[in-house]
Every structure is written in structure tokens, then in C-alpha cells.
């Protein structure tokens, strides 16, 4: 037990935190771009932008997650 932490555990090992961060990213994506779509709908009186925003947000989050955790 060295004072400087055990060398075999790599704190950057994606596994421990990935599941939690993934949920955060997905929520951010859906809320931000879905919210933007909702506001646009509200403003223009349409109904389509909310769905567009949600799909865009989900796609963006998944892409971001792939960049963070999936890329080798």
C-alpha cells in the first residue's frame, strides 16, 4: 500500500463512471435540443420541431458518448 495510490488501478479506466456519465449526457442532449425545439414550436406555432430536436439531441448525445467511451 503505497501512499501514491496503487499503480495497477488506472483512474481513467472508463468502466467505473461510464454508465453514470452516459445517462447525464443523454439527458443533456434530450433536454437541450428538445427544449430548443419546443421553444421554436412555441414561437412559430408548429408541432414538428420538438420531435426534430429530440431526435437531434439523442443522436448528438450518442455521438458524443461514442467519442468519449467508444473510440479506441
Amino acid at each position: 500500500m503505497s501512499q501514491n495510490g496503487s499503480p495497477e488501478t488506472d483512474p481513467q479506466d472508463a468502466g467505473d463512471g461510464a454508465a453514470w456519465s452516459i445517462v447525464s449526457y443523454l439527458l443533456s442532449g434530450l433536454i437541450f435540443w428538445g427544449g430548443a425545439g419546443w421553444l421554436l414550436d412555441h414561437w412559430l406555432g408548429t408541432k414538428i420541431f420538438l420531435l426534430v430536436g429530440l431526435v437531434l439531441g439523442a443522436a448528438a448525445s450518442l455521438y458524443l458518448i461514442w467519442l468519449r467511451y467508444g473510440r479506441q
Binding site: S24, F32, A60, L67
Partner: peptide, 24 residues
């Protein structure tokens, strides 16, 4: 994030900021 085309930042940067400063 390094290594992605520039225009994608428009979509991803708000998400990163929101994740770090609000969602977490």
C-alpha cells in the same frame, strides 16, 4: 473534444457545457 470536424462543435459544445454545469 479533439478530433472532430469543426461544425459539429455547434451541436456538441452546448451539450458538454450543460452536462458539466447543470446535469451532473
Amino acid at each position: 473534444m479533439p478530433g472532430i470536424p469543426k461544425f459539429v462543435y455547434v451541436i456538441l459544445t452546448p451539450l458538454e457545457l450543460m452536462t458539466f454545469f447543470i446535469t451532473r
